[in-house]
């Protein structure tokens, strides 16, 4: 659906050249939700704007739905953009227009006749769950409702691709979840390809099928979300995964809890998919001479299946503990020692 080859964007600033996007190659398949995560300044904002040519690339190619975006005339580009919806962190609605008029805006641009416009707007209002708010002005809506208007507006012309520029970063956690659910819903119902950029790993966990991690204009790691959670390779990726598993906080809490006795070994086990069902702990206690204490466990759902992390403390002979670790690894479960040798 989308393929980027050797994409580069450099800016000339007073302090010299800045490379915001540095030779990126990327393929995004039709119907998938692809997440790009990175801290601010990583170049993800520039990257998503290169997809619909809001930024023109310095070199390299952007292919969307078989069209080479860099080689379009102004007119062709405008037409191509009508097939790529975009939503924004700050919604970017027209405050002078009602909800209905905002959603009708891209239809007006395309030149859709009035009657058809009204019909389509009413459909979209139902799709994003804004029934009864059609005549309100954006200033009368909450953040979540504004983003729903943004989504309806982006979908008005039946685009093939939806670009989400930090679409949930200005929303509270509960509203974020409802917007993410809406995006998954739309992805399933319409088979829409969604590209989103974010700095929040739980957004990736919740809705993305695949993820790319960006750092200093480059993609340092990419893959299936579950795989990346299970085995993050790069330091940057590990940092993002920690946003979701929170091992530091766990370790901090445990230190407080076991202040006097010491904690012994604390292991973090990461289960992926069906492995979560195996009676792993039971087997360890029965077969090895160790005491196991379950400290904290958490199962999260991703688009590719469940992902669980379990923190256990293991006490016993050092060699025995090593054998326990080997056993766990043998079960295709990731182990990381987060405390103790």
């Amino acid at each position: 659906m989308i393929s980027l080859t050797n994409l580069v964007k450099t800016y000339h600033t007073r302090d010299g050249q800045v490379t915001a996007v540095d030779s990126i190659d990327l393929t995004i398949d039709e119907g998938e939700i692809f997440g790009i995560i990175g801290y601010s300044g990583a170049g993800k904002s520039t990257l998503i704007r290169l997809l619909n040519m809001l930024e023109t690339p310095s070199s390299g190619n952007v292919m969307i739905a078989g069209k080479n975006m860099n080689h379009l005339s102004n007119k062709q580009l405008r037409k191509a953009r009508q097939e790529i919806g975009m939503i924004f962190q700050h919604f970017n609605l027209l405050w002078s227009r009602t909800v209905k008029e905002n959603i009708a805006f891209p239809l007006e641009i395309k030149g859709v006749p009035k009657e058809e416009r009204e019909k389509r707007v009413n459909e979209l209002i139902g799709l994003v769950g804004l029934e009864g708010r059609g005549e309100s002005y954006p200033s009368q809506l909450s953040g979540g409702q504004k983003q729903r208007v943004g989504i309806a507006r982006a979908l008005a012309n039946n685009p093939k691709v939806l670009l989400c520029d930090e679409a949930t970063s200005a929303l509270d956690p509960k509203t974020t979840d409802s917007i993410l659910e809406l995006l998954v819903d739309i992805n399933k119902k319409l088979g829409l390809t969604i590209v989103l950029i974010t700095h929040e790993m739980h957004v990736i966990r919740k809705i993305c099928h695949r993820v790319a991690v960006m750092e200093e204009g480059r993609i340092v790691e990419q893959g299936n979300v579950l795989e990346v959670f299970k085995k993050p390779k790069e330091l940057m990726t590990k940092e993002f995964v920690k946003q979701v598993t929170e091992p530091e906080e766990t370790e901090e809490a445990l230190k407080q809890l076991f202040k006097d006795n010491g904690i012994g070994h604390v292991l973090q086990l990461t289960f992926v998919g069906g492995e979560a069902k195996k009676p792993l702990i039971n087997t360890i206690i029965k077969s090895y001479d160790v005491t196991v204490n379950i400290l904290q466990g958490k199962i999260s759902q991703t688009q590719n299946g469940p992902y669980g992390s379990l923190f256990i403390s293991v006490e016993g002979d050092k060699d025995e503990i090593d054998r326990v670790q080997d056993f766990i690894r043998g079960q295709q479960v990731e182990v990381e020692v987060i405390h103790g040798e």
Partner: peptide
Amino acid sequence: IDKGVIEAAKSMGASNRQ
């Protein structure tokens, strides 16, 4: 006028006149 709104209009394929 918020530059983001102009950007949004561009992203929808609006011409300068529009």
